[in-house]
Design a protein around this nucleic acid. Sequence first.
DNA 1: AAGTGGTCTAGACCACTAG
DNA 2: TAGTGGTCTAGACCACTTC
Lengths: 255, 255
Amino acid sequence: MPPRTARRLTSFTSSDRPLYDQVRQRLIEGISAGEWRAGEAIPPEIELSQSFGVSIGTIRKAVDALVAHRALVRRQGKGTFVTAHDIGQLAFHFFHIVPRDGAKVYPEVRTVGFRRDRGDPMSARALQIAPHDKVIRIRNVLSLAGAPVSVDDITLAAELFRGLSEKHFVSRGNTIYHLYQSRYGINVLRTEERLRAVLAKGDVAQHLGVAEGAPLLEIRRLALSFRDRPVELRLSHVNTARHEYYNTLGKGEAL
Amino acid sequence: MPPRTARRLTSFTSSDRPLYDQVRQRLIEGISAGEWRAGEAIPPEIELSQSFGVSIGTIRKAVDALVAHRALVRRQGKGTFVTAHDIGQLAFHFFHIVPRDGAKVYPEVRTVGFRRDRGDPMSARALQIAPHDKVIRIRNVLSLAGAPVSVDDITLAAELFRGLSEKHFVSRGNTIYHLYQSRYGINVLRTEERLRAVLAKGDVAQHLGVAEGAPLLEIRRLALSFRDRPVELRLSHVNTARHEYYNTLGKGEAL
DNA sequence: AAGTGGTCTAGACCACTAG
DNA sequence: TAGTGGTCTAGACCACTTC
């Protein structure tokens, strides 16, 4: 066996980071750059192993990390694919409003507002854009089993979503993230959410069909892509009379 | 090299589950049974490898899964330890109330109620005990920076926590889970939480120092141990005027 | 120096998918 | 049958901790 140091230098410049970490980084770059798009397969492990000049075990360790982050999915006998935010269980990964009794249902989305605007200081800071850069503001009303449950006010950096228009929001389901991915190549990987209880008022109360002063769950969500790049800011007001926000901390599966 | 099948039979009865899965299961059993207690080290990998009759790589894969679930922590050069729910970052893993502006602070806990009772149907079902089995009910008031923020009503199966008394709750911090672990050998691994917005009333409002009808965040939390065994049911009412519930979905670290 | 976990390799064989 | 990911092994060497 040739000395490892020599081989490492053929593919990677010297670095103190582990090899699998560098491979992981390269895969991320390939996905971000659109080299492999959502739903497409990345090259087979053996091929990656050869082109990167590392062992298959190292490739597997790099891929493992990306699978854990839901950036990739493995399918035995078929290949390893870039995660697609299609309708399906994955759509629920970032949608946590469930009926207090029954089972999960797909939400119906109705877009009631769409306009271009200048960013306010709060949004701009969250989205990491300049204070008065252009933004797109969308208001959606989400219904479950026919009844309105949540009013979502979405803010996007116009820079990232050129050419976005109201007609793109006719699709079924909560998969705006699928739209981001298929049309703009932006993969939402994780979100940060801040929840509070507030009192209903104004048009939000009207949309939800509740009285002013009714208790609502307020959710401020920031959606992030690779390298924690901010993608979307969303302010939701949820009527929790018949629904609730369900969350599981620690790995979801039992040990 | 001897055939793998022969070796496998020396340690494991025939099974279609992967070896690393069986090793993982055995480690879980050892921890649950108190063979290695919280904060203690499990045997070194090479020793496990020999006693289980599998390769070190297989041991590592089994341990990896337990580390991902926070049941174990690795410390290079020292060993692999059963996770201890001591004061520290781990205490925050299940505590998600943060100031809306400032940084995280340790909550001060004051126990204002402790009594033995019979389970109501709801609690009994969640804790998986018979409808009228004995339970322990505790009420804690959590304060951050001196101001009361949350009223927690905790229900425990008396069967699991024999001899528990009010005086055990004098400790600082949110680490009731440390008490469960050190005194009863029960490791809380994950929680399920259901959040709603409600209106303040009665003694809860008084404890929090808010008017009746103020919006509060209600959290119903079920804490689970190995094999999803229910440990604790907790009903919290949080004043989110100056604090909020912070949650991150998808792996917490950036890619 | 001894002992621990962390990284990496090379290769065998199994399980699943597709033509 | 060929190609993919999934499991498992055996062993080398590195990085860190402790004595």
